[in-house]
């Protein structure tokens, strides 16, 4: 397919609202080959120049596909390479909402200018990083590994409870469920993603069950974070029930304190519940993403190689871990999902 390019000119739309209340979207400025746009309802259509990718949506490129997006606030750009999945998501940390630009699979490059207000976070299925005035490329391996390479600026990356700071021409690899590895010099040459991912495939095929265990660990991390929030939400619900009853008593008694009580106690409890619910859904959808793009790919790789020898020991070991992951996923994650997610 002939490449199409649109020179992005003209005023960028800036809502003027506090960035904490307004999530960032990305406009499509270039596409070539086969590029899909999956909306929040789960429907996938062809991505065209001018299309707005909103939070909760994904860009999916096939082997001949490339896409370039620009955030609608600021001049930051995102390049989605072939065979990649880029997701625009949101999470709430300490009551503050932040956009997360995520490479769910393949290779995604991002270049950031200093933004008005909060810069987005970047990451993959197993790590998140804060960026500032940065050009960074993220490679997501088929085994759930992430390679983050910084061309300019600075990145602070968090995974497995540890943080590493990257400066220009530095890179680090993160394996699923683990802290970041040792950072190393990266001289700015683009990583040959196919070769890098082939290496990941070779590592996976050498020990499929071991690779699956690492993915299980990563998914368990998200699941544990989600499960930790569930009792908090239940407590807030109980607190709200008590507060709502007290509010009714004050209102029925035409007590002048009812207005302040509503604004100062009841409404914050509703807001806290809503925030907790949002975060629970974020973790559940993160696990869904790993299940779909990492574990699902692993399963297909093994199944296609062992269709004629299903009794192969390596295959059996992998299936054992796979079944364990799916059981845990169905027990704890699926209840937090709805049909539109799947």
């Amino acid at each position: 397919m002939k490449a199409r390019r649109l020179t992005f000119a003209g005023a960028l739309l800036f809502a003027g609202l506090c960035p904490l209340l307004q999530a960032q979207n990305a406009e499509t400025v270039f596409t070539s080959g086969t590029v899909g746009h999956k909306n929040a309802a789960g429907k996938t259509v062809s991505l065209e120049i001018g299309d707005l990718v909103r939070t909760g949506e994904s860009v999916i490129t096939k082997s001949d596909g490339n896409a370039e997006l620009q955030l609608t606030t600021g001049k930051s750009s995102i390049k989605v390479k072939p065979n990649s999945v880029f997701m625009l998501t949101e999470r709430s940390v300490g009551g503050v909402k932040q956009t997360v630009l995520q490479a769910a699979a393949g290779s995604v490059s991002m270049k950031f200018e200093k933004l008005a207000g909060k810069e987005p976070l970047v990451g993959s299925s197993n790590c998140v990083a804060g960026v500032r005035g940065t050009e960074v490329t993220i490679y997501a391996g088929m085994d759930g590994s992430t390679l983050m390479a910084v061309s300019s600026g600075a990145v602070e990356l968090e995974s497995g409870g540890s943080t590493v700071s990257l400066s220009a021409n530095e890179a680090v690899e993160v394996k699923p469920g683990q802290a970041p590895g040792q950072k190393f010099a990266w001289l700015g040459k683009e990583v040959d993603y196919s070769k890098w991912n082939e290496g990941k495939l070779a590592d996976f095929l050498a020990d499929p069950a071991g690779s699956a265990r690492k993915v299980r660990e990563q998914m368990a991390g998200y699941r544990d974070s989600m499960l930790a929030l569930l009792p908090e939400l239940e407590k807030k619900k109980a607190d709200f029930a008590a507060a709502a009853a007290e509010l009714k008593r004050l209102s029925d008694a035409k007590d002048q304190r009812s207005e302040d009580y509503r604004a100062g106690t009841v409404f914050p409890l509703i807001q806290d519940q809503a925030t907790l619910f949002l975060n629970i859904r974020y973790y559940a959808l993160s696990v869904l993403s790993m299940r779909r793009f990492v574990l699902g790919d692993m399963y297909m790789q093994m199944r296609s190689r062992h269709m004629l020898d299903p009794g192969n020991q390596q295959y059996s070991d992998f299936l054992g871990v796979y079944a364990d992951i799916v059981t845990a996923y169905e027990a704890s994650i699926v209840p937090q999902l709805v049909d539109a997610d799947i």
Binding site: A40, A274, R281
Partner: peptide, 19 residues
């Protein structure tokens, strides 16, 4: 709107039980 940020998170009835 399916294009809104929180569409996916706001689908469950449980969210509207909160609001």
């Amino acid at each position: 709107s399916t294009s809104s940020v929180k569409y996916a998170q706001a689908v469950p009835a449980a969210y509207w039980d909160i609001v």
